[in-house]
Amino acid sequence: MIQREDERRVNETGTAVRADPLADSDPFVIAGETFGSRLIMGTGGAPSMRTLEDALVASGTRLTTVAMRRVDPSVQGSVLDVLRRRDITVLPNTAGCFTAGEAVLTAKLAREALGTSWVKLEVIADERTLLPDPIELVDAAEQLVDNGFIVLPYTNDDPVLARRLEQIGCAAVMPLGSPIGSGLGIRNPHNIELIVEQAGVPVVLDAGIGTASDAALAMELGCDAVLLATAVTRAQAPARMAAAMRHAVEAGRLARLAGRIPKRRYAQASSPWQGLSTA
């Protein structure tokens, strides 16, 4: 497994790897902003605002997505109130957009409504797979970067597309593990590794996480963070699963920094052969 330069430096100095992997020694930085958690949460799918709030707190997240939709006067309480109360940074998305034009307009509306130029850029191809449309995605990313947005694109697990998005000026790349809400985990770990190897911006594994081991694997593969929603909000006990994800992301990050042992074909004794009683 090839590690990136920043991680190698942390390992060689030795002192940088401490008991708390998310402390000052290992900050998670996107576009110059430091976040105290490598777990980015979505808010869709929670049965109630109370359940959502409990889950967000248990997850330890510091950055959380919302969608932009037509106002509905019958809706009581706002997800924005929850995020404000918990001092969690809001990350608007462009979910539901099928074209670059729709996504750019949605991002501009989000900037106006929420006062942030950060956007999780999502341009999907069809409702059945919710897979990103790469042509529209690149078009929208270029327009938004030109308009001064901090663009975090939800992308296919395609190393070439990820590289193009970085070259355009995106602040991170967010490849899917598998389709949104599918819980199928990481279907192509090799591609995720390739994306991580070449990336000069943070890599966030976005979509497809089903359970804690999926999140840990993403971090072990070298991703800088994980973005998930459904795995927590539609779990039987959302707050408990949120805590599991928090631990998984931290465990996976620690394992990545620690450097795993190589896989071997045969056993390697962990107890010494010397001094074995032959009586």
Binding site: A46, T65, V66, A67, M68, V71, A110, E122
Partner: peptide, 30 residues
């Protein structure tokens, strides 16, 4: 009509027949 109107311009922006107005807010998602 698919163009953002900044809040500061709301009172000074008249509507015309058949205009399309979208009023959006943040909801749970993503």
């Amino acid at each position: 009509n698919d163009e953002v109107v900044r809040r500061a311009e709301w009172t000074a922006t008249p509507l015309r027949e058949a205009d399309r107005l979208e009023v959006l807010t943040a909801v749970q998602g993503g």
